[in-house]
Simulated assay, not measured.
Amino acid sequence: MIRTAIIAALVAALPAIALSVPESSAARAAPARASEWEIGPILRGRSYSPGMPRYAARENGATFFDIPWPSPREGHVHYVTVPTGSLTGARRIVLRYRIDGERGVRILPEENPRQKATLSLYFQRGGDKWTGKGRYATYRWYAPAATMGPLTPGTHEVSVPLDANWTAVQGANRNSAPEAFARALEDASRVGFVLGSSGGRGHGVFATGPARFTILDFRVE
């Protein structure tokens, strides 16, 4: 269980999600309900974040999830997203988050624990078959490597402009495939963040001890 000191820190959390978008673009905003932060991905009814609940929890005004520990056998968390509408015309995506854990606890990539665990902002075009082949090679988009956030204790903020050089699942980027990127923005269906490493975005992480990830603020501006 998360120790009393961690719980006490969470009670003082800021509001879970704050969205700031122009009124004309409100349809693209992510929902403010914790129950819509889906932990997955969920493919054909199966969760690819084993050991995790389907949705984030909300308690004492905080939206959060606990990271599986102490090894990948207990589970790992990969994608954390909410539904969205079109992102065309949006300027940037902003996430502020806090990680609480006991002293010495580390968060590690499930695929290669020797690498550094990272967070990347993410959005996905609707209708993705998750094959990464053909047209689906440009349906999932990850923020540039230089903007990846840390998975270490403390409060962090990641803000990524949507005119930056985002990378698609099979290596194309906004500069090399501008039309595909524009279509993905227009038809966006989910937005959020993924956990893994620089060598495996969204390939999942686990913790060496009790650790909690709290979403303090999320905005599509």
Rank of each mutant, 00 (worst) to 15 (best):
Y122F: 10
F123W: 04
Q124Y: 00
R125K: 15
R125L: 11
G126K: 15
G126Q: 11
G127W: 13
G127D: 07
K129R: 14
T131R: 08
T131C: 13
T131D: 13
T131I: 11
T131P: 12
T131V: 13
G132D: 08
G132L: 13
R135Y: 08
R135E: 09
R135K: 15
Y139I: 04
R140Q: 10
R140T: 10
W141S: 04
W141N: 07
W141P: 09
P144E: 01
P150Y: 07
L151R: 05
T152A: 10
T152K: 07
T155I: 06
S159K: 06
V160R: 04
V160Y: 12
V160D: 02
V160A: 01
P161Y: 05
D163P: 05
A164Q: 07
N165L: 09
W166S: 01
T167A: 00
A168F: 01
A168S: 15
V169L: 12
G171Y: 12
A172T: 12
A172D: 08
A172W: 06
N173V: 13
N173C: 14
N175D: 12
S176G: 11
P178R: 11
E179S: 09
E179Q: 14
A180D: 15
A180S: 14
A182Y: 14
A182V: 05
R183K: 15
A184E: 06
E186F: 09
D187M: 09
D187P: 00
S189A: 09
S189F: 03
S189V: 02
R190H: 10
R190T: 14
V191G: 01
G192A: 00
G192I: 00
F193Q: 00
V194M: 05
L195D: 07
L195F: 08
S197D: 04
S197A: 10
S198C: 07
G200F: 13
R201E: 02
R201G: 04
R201A: 09
H203P: 02
H203M: 15
G204S: 10
F206W: 14
A207D: 07
A207S: 15
A207V: 01
G209I: 00
P210K: 10
P210W: 08
A211G: 05
